[in-house]
């Protein structure tokens, strides 16, 4: 019974979230375009399904995945787990945190695969490219990018390096790749950076960053805890372009053999 109550609560929150978009669409459709919406019944049902789907999705995440993922992030970054029976190092060595990097990469990859907005963009990309871009391969390359990004970001927090060196290096790599990458993929690759950091990934990744920054001596949650998300939105751009470049090299090789 309480589950039903919680569902309606989340549904209400989602509805409030969607209301501005819905009113903008309606105002422009009715006052500016001044034409009835094509297939209005189907679109209406579509919106209804999206609402119900998002509410169920968020409720499920709140119930099952977030508490567990956040608890695990806390436990893995806890000095008691990291040093077990050894003495706690006053100056942390980045080697002590191997499990944290592995967890960061794994959670980055798996949450990105379940990210609804990435699924949406991947479906659209496959449709528009007439199948030249495979939705699943795109999602997997983005997920690999996020995995590397979050792991690298965790390493940065442990090592205590300033964030902008990493980000600026990343930008330089993106610029160089842009020059050599197939032109078709570039806008999609840029988009995939913004898409990844959404409903599922952000809460878990943020918990990991705050856990790390608040347990390692000498790190401040305010300055070091932020910024994992910046890594998670930069690395997918590099990964998607790399994927396109690898595919291009492969097809060239095949043609040469023929």
């Amino acid at each position: 019974m309480s589950l039903l109550f919680e569902f309606f609560h989340t549904l209400k929150a989602t509805l409030i979230d969607v209301l501005p978009i819905l009113s903008i669409i309606l105002v422009f459709q009715l006052l500016v375009i001044r034409k009835p919406i094509p297939k209005v019944k189907q679109v209406g049902f579509g919106f209804f399904y999206v609402l119900i789907g998002l509410a169920l999705f968020l409720l499920g995440l709140e119930k099952a995945l977030f508490p567990l993922g956040k608890m695990m992030a806390e436990q893995l970054t806890d000095p008691k787990f990291i040093y077990a029976e050894q003495a706690i190092n006053a100056v942390p060595s980045w080697l002590d945190y191997t499990w944290v990097y592995i967890f960061a990469a794994a959670i980055g990859f798996s949450t990105t695969i379940a990210e609804p907005s990435l699924i949406a963009v991947a479906i659209k990309a496959e449709e528009v490219s007439a199948g030249a871009i495979n939705a699943n391969s795109l999602r997997i390359s983005v997920a690999i990018g996020v995995a590397i990004g979050v792991a690298l970001g965790s390493f940065r927090i442990v090592a205590g390096h300033p964030i902008h060196y990493y980000i600026i290096t990343g930008y330089i790599i993106v610029v160089i790749q842009t020059m050599f990458c197939p032109k078709l993929i570039i806008p999609l690759a840029y988009d995939s950076g913004g898409v990844t950091t959404s409903t599922v990934t952000v809460p878990l990744v943020a918990a990991l960053g705050l856990g790390l920054a608040s347990t390692i001596p000498g790190r401040s949650p305010l300055i070091d805890g932020f910024g994992l998300i910046a890594f998670a939105s930069l690395c997918p751009i590099i990964a998607v372009m790399a994927y396109a470049q690898l595919t291009q090299i492969n097809t060239h090789k095949k043609q040469n053999i023929k």
Binding site: F45, G46, F47, I52, G53, A55, L56, I123
Partner: peptide, 13 residues
């Protein structure tokens, strides 16, 4: 939720 969302995506959004 994910199923409904994707279903509604192609129908509505």
């Amino acid at each position: 939720g994910l199923t409904f969302f994707i279903y509604g995506l192609e129908m509505g959004l």
